[in-house]
């Protein structure tokens, strides 16, 4: 599919003591919701924070909206204003109360719509009507409510790109469903101008809203593409244990028990498995992600 990138990462390198993030070429398509998937410590947060401009020291280039460089992002007020970021740490200062969070956002972001903010908070059952509600401190809120507060903040702004670091993790299932709807509405409201990039471990819950997936392992992008294309690229196979030996060599990733095996196979290799008694399915995003992550993980490989 031909798309315009909203963010392009080229030759990104960021070294830590025991970890290096290395992204050669990564494009996030404009007008879609992209899920950044990977195990803990794979580099998702680092990458998102680099894109958001929260980590300035790295090699390589990031291009915004297909034309602006990182220098432009720092020097042109509009660019950072077009980007909404929600993180996992202390986004709002912990001693702030709800009134202060509203006041701060009004001052810090051009185009912050106070009415919309109040209405989203109301909709998310986080009312600011009473004096008691307004004086409630951010530190007194649950993780889920803090995430709602951040979401209400970024959705009340006139942004073109939302960067969300694990927005679903602290939310309950109902709220996750609402989050998916909010992301869909955000993208749909702009005629292809708005994009969302989010990292997640809750792949099943977020599958409905994921158009494009980027799978990161050990600091590198190991797979990326539109979810529908990835589902064509891979096939999920299940078979009896006696066929495992014959199939193993052609499977991208496999798990087995004493009764049978299942795993991912590149669709182009399916003809090599002809003659075996296999059940073939279109993989879910969860199966795809876990399979690709497992094939590339360092988990359990230490010392091997």
């Amino acid at each position: 599919m031909n798309t315009t990138p909203v963010i392009t990462c080229k030759n990104i390198e960021k070294k830590y003591k025991n970890f290096t993030l290395n992204v050669e070429n990564l494009e996030f398509p404009k007008g879609f919701a992209t899920a950044l998937i990977g195990e803990n410590g794979a580099g998702k947060t680092t990458l998102l924070e680099m894109i958001a401009g929260l980590r300035l020291e790295h090699k390589g280039d990031i291009t915004y909206f297909n034309k602006y460089s990182e220098d432009d992002r720092e020097n042109n007020l509009d660019i950072k204003n077009k980007i909404g970021y929600t993180g996992t740490g202390n986004y709002f200062l912990p001693h702030w109360n709800l009134e202060q969070t509203r006041m701060a956002q009004e001052l810090l972001f051009d185009g912050f719509d106070v009415r919309k903010y109040d209405s989203i908070l109301e909709n998310l059952a986080l009312s600011m009507n009473g004096k008691k509600d307004r004086n409630k401190k951010v530190s007194e809120l649950s993780d889920g409510n803090r995430t709602k507060l951040m979401l209400a903040g970024v959705l009340s702004r006139d942004t073109e790109l939302l960067l969300m670091d694990e927005p679903a993790s602290p939310l309950d299932p109902l709220m996750r469903d609402k989050l998916c709807n909010m992301i869909q509405d955000y993208i749909a409201s702009s005629d292809g101008q708005r994009s969302v990039i989010f990292s997640t471990h809750n792949i099943s819950d977020m599958e409905n809203v994921t158009d494009y997936a980027v799978i990161v392992e050990n600091g590198s992008v190991v797979e990326q593409g539109f979810v529908e294309e990835l589902k064509e690229k891979y096939t999920y196979v299940k078979g009896d244990i006696e066929d495992l030996k014959a199939a193993e060599g052609y499977l991208y990733d496999v798990t087995s028990s004493k009764y049978g095996f299942e795993g991912l196979c590149l669709s182009e290799n399916m003809d090599k498995l002809a003659g075996l008694n296999l059940m073939c399915e279109t993989p879910t995003l969860m199966q795809l992600s876990v399979g690709i992550m497992r094939a590339n993980t360092r988990l359990g490989k230490a010392g091997k």
């Binding site: 958001a52 401009g53 204003n81 980007i83 709002f92």
Partner: peptide, 15 residues
Amino acid sequence: YGFGILRCTSKGQEH
């Protein structure tokens, strides 16, 4: 010290 939201905007330092 986490400057939180102040880092997410170009107006953070001015604020």
